[in-house]
Amino acid sequence: MITFKLNGQERTFDGDPDTPLLWVLRDFEKLTGTKYGCGIAQCGACTVHLDGSTRRSCITPISTVDGSEVITIEGIEGKEAEAVRKAWIAIDVPQCGYCQSGQIMSAVSLLQLTPKPTDEDIDGAMAGNICRCATYHRIRQAIHNAADTMEG
């Protein structure tokens, strides 16, 4: 039996311990905001926060999550999350929207660690998140805007 905290609530899982966190979230917890995109940690659509850091849930066996705290797009809170969401909405970042949960989870983590990121910081933190609609131009702008609003 694996026990972990999911968006602030105690959860348990007693299925196959190899099951990636992604499928536990989607199939068992019915939290579908976290997306499948590649299954091999290449695209970042499945990004969640595990004990405060970004994690690709598609390659994270649930067995390694025992005792940990998981935050998904449905549960992310705080001033960085608020600033990122507002910035995303203000300049209409999403197109198809499928990758955006992962983009936002990575962007929030970046701002938690680096409140005033440079373009290079953004490249470093966000290069693992693919957007096939190529909304990158607006993602970069929105992260800068979010940083500005947090400062101000």
Partner: peptide, 26 residues
């Protein structure tokens, strides 16, 4: 502003892969 933006920033936008029914086969 685009009509579909907000739901695409909080995980509530529903795509086919997110459709869930009771007793569903995969």
């Amino acid at each position: 502003p685009k009509l579909d933006t907000v739901s695409k920033t909080n995980g509530t936008a529903v795509f086919t892969l997110d459709i869930t029914a009771d007793n569903m086969l995969y």
